[in-house]
Write a protein that binds this DNA or RNA. Structure first.
Length: 502
RNA sequence: GGCCCGUUCGUCUAGGGGUAAGGACGUUAGAUUUUCAUUCUAGAAACAGGGGUUCGAUUCCCCUACGGGCUACCA
């Protein structure tokens, strides 16, 4: 069996959609599992849609996810170049070969010509039944075709779909798939600007790069027959990769493919990382900047359309590599569920080492303009609150009171039920603390409780006020853990300050 | 419209001719947390419909319905 080689082939037109990341992931898993090569190929054949910076962005996304390609424009490789714009010469050559062999033809119809056809004919298709009435090398006299070509009249090269042929192939996910050649149009292979369309480029490059398995979204299924034909016409039939058409990732509500718009509308990210459109300057938030851990993001994506058959939900990348198989990819599209994505992230944050979280939390804090000076203290705070974080971004909301005194107190009914004996209790507690400046959390709690009993008061009526004094509201970790981490001195300060408002 | 693909709890899915149709997210209830979140326990919740095949279909076949994708000199 020949070497496994797969490619992730995005076009650099904007942010990297999570569906794209999943395609990259499946490619990566398959390649690693079979000791194959994972190639990044940039499909930048549409010059009008090219967006500056998008390629670099894609590379960074893959890096963040831990899916580093073995070959690609940024790392090179034996099959370079990896940008289709830099392989332009190849395509014309192959397209001309197809024309010579009678499998394709020149077409001189202008965009306006075609538009007019579409206006007149309801379901206009360039192909059977229409190609013989249009301006192409099938209908025009040879001399005129030759003259047109010599004079550089703009033209495209179209595939000539055969008549009455069933085009069939095996898809690794869907099994046997077949199409009637009479119903497929003569797709453009080479555009007037000399660039290939996706159809030509993908076949030529998959051949040249010796790709063994072509993973792509299900949206490509309808154009597969064109590609199959091309593999045959170019004489590469034996080298054709196996096809793996992945189920689509759908929007959570309603139906249809998940798009960036859905994310904006429903309030969750769709792109892997922040994407700033260089033209409009619009910023679209990504999973990374939303506070996702790459491991969680990948784990969540892996289970969108793939399952190992067991009850396991949490997988490391290595486990995924180990267990991945095309046979276990499902056929139907999967609706994206942000709640579940959140749950995955929560799981990974809980499991994470404090040191791992620290560096990323520091970044989040920096974004908010907050600088933390004491690293050891920060680590202790993280350890205390990490179970409560669904996102890294939640950190500040869960822990700001460790770094600054509460600005406001949510005393509410505590205030209306306040008594002088409660004030008295806290005064006494302060006095006690002053004598025991090195108490740990347990001791703090024990003395608090015994003091309350001594005074004949209910602990429950005192705990909540104490918490609010320290953090400002009804939230946070164990109150004595907070007091201990804050330090006795600061605890006393806060009690005194809050007492003034009661 | 045409072509292609698909259809198990609300969602992601496991399963597969005879099952109490399993798990996870979410949800509901209870316990813990003298806050909140976490955590724990329990519960509700699904085989799109109709025909076959069969002793027996959720599972195999066909049809219908529904959903999706594609239908550009975009990928």
């Amino acid at each position: 069996m020949s070497k496994i080689r797969v490619r992730f082939a995005p076009s650099p037109t904007g942010g990297l959609h999570l569906g794209g990341v999943r395609t990259a992931l499946f490619n990566y898993l398959f390649a690693r599992k079979h000791q194959g090569d994972f190639v990044l190929r940039i499909e930048d054949t549409d010059q009008s849609r090219y967006v500056a910076g998008a390629e670099q962005y894609i590379v960074e996304c893959l890096k963040w996810c831990g899916l580093n390609p073995d070959e690609g424009p940024h790392v090179g490789g034996t099959f370079a170049p990896y940008r289709q714009s830099e392989r332009k010469e190849n395509y014309r050559r192959y397209a001309e070969t197809l024309v010579k062999d009678g499998y394709a033809y020149y077409a001189f119809d202008t965009a306006e010509d075609l538009e007019a056809q579409r206006q007149q004919i309801p379901n206009f298709r360039y192909g059977h039944g229409s190609r013989e009435f249009l301006k192409n090398s099938l209908t025009l006299p040879d001399a005129e075709v030759k003259r047109n070509l010599e004079q550089g009249v703009p033209h495209v090269i179209r595939i000539k779909m055969p008549t009455d042929e069933m085009i069939t192939f095996q898809d690794r996910i869907r099994g046997h798939v077949s199409f009637d050649s009479n119903l497929i149009d003569d797709k453009v292979l080479l555009k007037a600007d000399g660039m290939p369309t996706y159809h030509l480029a993908v076949v030529v490059d998959d051949y040249l790069m010796e790709i063994s398995h072509a993973f792509r979204g299900e949206e490509w299924l309808p154009s597969a027959p064109v590609h199959i034909l091309l593999w045959n016409y170019l004489g590469w039939k034996d080298k054709m990769p196996e096809w793996v058409h992945l189920p689509l990732i759908l929007k959570p509500d309603g139906n249809g493919k998940l798009s960036k718009r859905d994310g904006d509308r429903l309030g969750f990210p769709v792109y892997a990382m922040n994407w700033k459109d260089p033209k409009t300057g619009d910023l679209t938030r990504g999973f990374r900047e939303m506070g996702f851990l790459p491991e969680a993001f990948i784990n969540m994506l892996a289970l969108l359309g793939w399952h190992n058959g067991s009850d396991q939900e949490l997988f490391t990348l290595t486990e995924l590599v180990d267990q991945f198989s095309i046979e276990r990819i499902s056929k139907a599209g999967a609706k994206f569920d942000f709640e579940k994505a959140k749950w995955f992230n929560h799981q990974y944050i809980r499991q994470a080492q404090v040191s791992e979280l620290k560096s990323q939390i520091l970044v989040c804090l920096a974004e908010k303009g907050i600088a933390v000076q004491d690293n050891q203290y920060l680590e202790k705070v993280i350890a205390l609150v990490q179970d409560r974080l669904a996102f890294l971004q939640d950190f500040w909301d869960q822990s700001f009171f460790f770094f600054e005194q509460p600005q406001a107190y949510d005393f509410g009914t505590v205030k209306t039920n306040w008594t002088s004996s409660k004030s008295d209790f806290f005064e006494t507690y302060i006095a006690h603390l002053e004598q025991n400046m090195s108490s740990n959390a347990q001791e703090l709690e024990a003395s608090f409780k015994s003091l309350a009993t001594e005074k004949g008061m209910k602990v429950g009526e005192l705990m909540l006020p104490f918490r609010i004094m320290l953090v400002g509201g009804k939230f946070g970790p164990g109150v004595f853990d907070i007091a201990h981490l804050l330090g006795i001195e600061e605890t006393i300060n806060r009690i005194q300050k809050a007492l003034l408002t009661l």
